[in-house]
Simulated scan of single mutants.
Amino acid sequence: MNDVLAVNAVHLTKTYGPLTAVDDITVQVAQGEVYGVLGPNGAGKTTFLRMLFGLIRPDRGSLEVFGRSWRDHGVGALTGVAGFIESPKFYPTLTGRRNLRLLAGLDGGDAAGRIDEVLDLVGLTDRQHDKVRGYSFGMRQRLGAASALLRNPRLLVLDEPANGLDPAGIRDMRDLIRRLADTGLTVLLSSHDMAEVEQICDNVTIMKAGSVVHHGSIAALREQAPEQAHRITTTDDDRAGELARARGLEVAPVDVGLAVRGPQKDVDGLIADIVDAGIALRGLTRDETPLEALFFMLTESAPTGPTADLDAATGAHR
Rank of each mutant, 00 (worst) to 15 (best):
V4E: 09
L12M: 03
K14I: 01
T15G: 06
G17L: 04
G17D: 13
A21R: 01
A21M: 01
D23K: 01
V29R: 02
Q31V: 14
Y35R: 04
G39D: 04
R50A: 14
M51K: 00
I56D: 00
I56Y: 03
R57E: 11
P58K: 03
G67S: 08
G67A: 07
H73M: 07
G76E: 08
A77I: 06
L78N: 03
V81H: 00
E86D: 12
L94T: 09
R98C: 11
R98P: 14
N99C: 14
G113I: 06
I115M: 12
G123K: 06
G123V: 02
D126A: 15
R127D: 15
R133E: 15
Y135I: 13
G138E: 04
M139V: 08
M139I: 05
R142C: 14
L143K: 02
G144R: 01
S147I: 03
S147H: 04
R151T: 07
L158W: 02
D159N: 02
D166T: 05
D166M: 09
R179W: 13
T183W: 07
T183L: 08
G184T: 07
T186I: 05
H192A: 13
M194E: 04
E196T: 08
V197M: 10
I200V: 15
K208P: 13
A209I: 07
S211P: 07
S211R: 14
V212Y: 12
V212C: 14
D236S: 11
D237R: 00
D237V: 01
G241F: 11
A246S: 09
L249I: 05
E250T: 11
V251Q: 05
P253E: 08
V254R: 00
A259P: 13
P263G: 04
D268A: 13
V275C: 03
I279L: 07
A280D: 12
L281K: 01
L284N: 05
D287A: 15
E288Y: 12
T289C: 10
T299R: 13
T304I: 10
